[in-house]
Design a binder for these strands. Sequence first.
DNA 1: AAGCAATATTTGAAGCTTAAAATAACTTCG
DNA 2: CGAAGTTATTTTAAGCTTCAAATATTGCTT
Lengths: 168, 168
Amino acid sequence: MTGQAIPLDAETKAVEMPEDHRDELRLWLRLLTCTTLIEGEVRRRLRDRFDVTLPRFDLMAQLEKAPGGMTLSDLSKRMMVSNGNLTGLVERLVASGHLDRRTSKADRRAQVIRLTDLGRAEFKAMAAEHEGWIADLFTGLTRKDQDDLMRLLGKTKLSARAAMGDTP
Amino acid sequence: MTGQAIPLDAETKAVEMPEDHRDELRLWLRLLTCTTLIEGEVRRRLRDRFDVTLPRFDLMAQLEKAPGGMTLSDLSKRMMVSNGNLTGLVERLVASGHLDRRTSKADRRAQVIRLTDLGRAEFKAMAAEHEGWIADLFTGLTRKDQDDLMRLLGKTKLSARAAMGDTP
DNA sequence: AAGCAATATTTGAAGCTTAAAATAACTTCG
DNA sequence: CGAAGTTATTTTAAGCTTCAAATATTGCTT
């Protein structure tokens, strides 16, 4: 029922037949659908409720966890987006008064980014509601479901990283 | 250990304390990280190996499953992207000879999009490799892990749709 | 200390993405 | 039939995103 190969001819055909990976593909597509679905809803609510984009919210979320500020490179790694992307994102949030950018004293190449008081205040208000939205969206899962899913996603992350050659 | 509420004072504090939803938030962030990680790797490989973007690949994948073609609205719903987005995406793939676009005879508002022979041939070559990449990325999961994950993601999808008011 | 490799960031070009407004064609209901 | 509402698509403006090339600064090696 779940793509179990019928053992007919297994020995004669096994070598020449390309392996069937449709199950993994379906799993990946479902993972992607799930994420896209939730992400879209969060994006919509952030805009309707606070007139803010998801990337800006994510950026502020990172900074809120780092009171001492972060460099663009730090942010880039954490958020898994390109450096060039962050340059523009930070630029707009500095312009709107949510972020503060200054050159690091220790390393004049680096820019240290911090939340301003305004940025922190607005983020906290948004984050509180946001947390509620997420809880709502996952209401259909039992506590055990959530734990299982958490564990399996952790395993998936490790698997993916291993397959992409993570060690360097 | 996993955010189990300590039952101290549960009865007196339960009402006035705002609920704690950090576990759901962590689950969501992990889901997002997982997807972003894999998506980025797939995007990179598609570009390095075939010089194609992920959105183009996704679009062709939808069309490959619909030999009779699909309208922009169909595609828009399936791919969960805006109509305007598809207009441009299709435009570029028509220009490169991968897609064919024609006005529907039944409904002159609708555009029917199909893969050309070139498009189908190129997609098949890409899809074969792509399937292998996905399988690699999920190698660290046992068959049972995969089944469990599939089931839990299905449940998550339903939960999310329910929370966003799916019925209309 | 001079040169060279590595690191941090910015810039530029192209493409992706969305929301909202505009256009066009169909359907319905009186 | 014809007005009014609905559906399919395109257009527009703004922002996001990436990669690759350019710039600036640091650290290392001789």
